[in-house]
Write a protein that binds this DNA or RNA. Sequence first.
DNA 1: TCTGGGGTCCTAGGACCC
DNA 2: TCTGGGGTCCTAGGACCC
Length: 409
Amino acid sequence: MSCERAFQPELEGCPVVVLSNNDGCVVARSNESKALGVPMGTPYFKVKYLVDKGKLVVRSSNYTLYGDLSARVMSLLAEVAPKLEVYSIDEAFMNMDGVRKEDLTGLCRDLIRKIRRWTGIPVSIGIAESKTLAKVANHFAKKYKGYKGVCMIDTPEKMNKALSLTPIRDVWGIGWRGAPKLEAAGVKNALDFVSRPSEWVRERMGIMGVRTWSELQGIRMVEDEKDEKRKSICTSRSFANMITKFDDLAQRVSDFAGKCAEKLRKDGTAAGTVGVFIHTNRFREDLAQYYPNACVKLDVPANSTPEIVGAALRAMKMVFRQGFEYKRAGVIVTDIVDADSIQQTLFGFDSGARDRDDRISRVMDMVNTSGKNVLHLGTQRSGHYADGIRREFCSGLYTTSWDELIEVK
DNA sequence: TCTGGGGTCCTAGGACCC
DNA sequence: TCTGGGGTCCTAGGACCC
């Protein structure tokens, strides 16, 4: 939302929503659109009448733009925080241990001004002893202008006040299934929750519930994300139109597999297992449903495009059935190891074919720099895994280069 | 007509072993 | 004939996050 506004100030003050891939459903809302009563996750066709009446503006999502701006904001945070943990595209935890408490608020206000000036993105900061409590604080910082972007919960009094004003459903880690259960038991807000004994929480919510319970009281339970490699990588998409032919689906699955291989190489890892899932349209109850998945174990972990694509196609052959209309598919690679560690394993193998595959992949990576996907295997449709995605309301590609514009078309 | 994508972790239950 | 029980590992599915 802020990204779209950063480049289109005329959207300021307007009800705007950003749509998911395929212009499927609402994934981000401006305050004005929330006030209009547009719920998160609404399918676009349900709010189209508001658009037609001129009451709501929509934008297709533009992850290249958001990723770019996010990286700029994160680098400014990193200049200030002794330790920075990037949690998602629009959220980060700054570990400020060692900074004097009296300095924190001022320091954060300066940071917010700087980010606004340099990137156009408005940010808010919540400060507390634990991550969950910091998220509560951030909520207040965002909601009430008086905080000037920064809210600190640093005394038991402030903590109790904040918790009593936080509906239990808004607490990080409770979730849409947990909240109704708690509400039914009389727990309406976060203060009610922490007032229950930990055993009570354990019985109903498991150990994750107890972690949240402790976190809300300022006890750190959520570990800092270590710099470890991802344990699985998934590339999947819904299709604008349903697919029935094996060859068409195989091309899309090849694209997804190729993207997974690229991600592996970028991470410096390799995968031991390649999985594929294909789904019919779950909303079309009038049509036959089929949601199979299959996976192929590789003899030796791999990250080359030909190997990952080959394995994905083998997996897909195992489960593909004629007569269904497929709406979505994806490739998941797991059993991920460091790419360096497989060299020794390979010792003694006839690795000629693998060398060739690795060379092919390296050339593909060199040529297919961000957005310019021109090199691909015969089974891949276009080398552009995002093809066939509906993006009717895309704003300009402000931070992408002309070269990429040509490729994106 | 039209309904997102990419992760992590926990838990329950089955397989297997002694 | 009698036919246990506990530990570990793996997997699928559920729940959560943004």
